[in-house]
Design a protein around this nucleic acid. Structure first.
Lengths: 110, 110
DNA sequence: AATCTTTATCGTAATATTGCAATATTAAAT
DNA sequence: ATTTAATATTGCAATATTACGATAAAGATT
């Protein structure tokens, strides 16, 4: 096999898993952190910041974009990538929720 | 290649990526949500809750445990799995941080 | 128009993940 | 001691991911 059985899970579960999966690589975490660090988001220099070849970085950017974690706009002959807040807000909400529920359960648990 | 170049990234980046990767599968999201839903955490019935065979579920549980997202204690001849709060608190903090930073940046961005 | 710069895509090799049947393990129950 | 029940491990096939060299595409510069 090897193909994930997405159809057996809820839309929400798949949505969170997709976001998490896209962030499941240190290079992509590094890209997100870099996009937050720099002042502007004209980001032709992401490649220089990472220890990876240009095609590899381009591929990681594509995955982040597909997952909805970043947006990309053409800006002359370079491209302006930036964080898509909404996706991270979703993650924040989700994990806040989980943490809260986990705390409330603590008493009757190991 | 195919092997992730973890050594080129910071410990924190790798740590978050590891947690995110472990949650990057709907079955593992479903497991976490189930562990939160049930009252106790004696969890021999996770297999019945998921549309996957027992060895597959066992493997997903192992990955969640390796990532530090759940804990497992032997309880007689079954095993008590439960959420490891600390990992989810880390994720909550991380994404809250990202969201806040992203909001502050919004003005001078696309 | 020719060239440069920047980013994307193709092709491909190495490795990892997903899923399950078969089997092993371990503790409880008879 | 056998059997039962619950979970883990092994082995394997199908598929996905990671990484990069080579090349393409498209706008900017000369």
């Amino acid at each position: 096999m090897g193909a994930t059985k997405t159809d057996h899970f809820t839309g929400k579960q798949n949505a969170i898993a997709t976001l998490a999966k896209a962030l499941g690589h240190p290079a992509r975490i590094a890209i997100i952190e870099y996009l937050l660090k720099v002042d502007t988001c004209i980001c032709g220099d992401i490649v220089n910041e990472l220890p990876l070849a240009q095609p590899t970085v381009s591929q990681h950017l594509k995955e982040l974009k597909n997952a909805g974690l970043i947006k990309g706009e053409i800006e002359g002959n370079s491209i302006c990538y930036c964080i898509d807040e909404k996706a991270f807000q979703k993650l924040q909400t989700y994990f806040t929720n989980i943490s809260t529920k986990a705390e409330n359960k603590r008493s009757n648990c190991c």
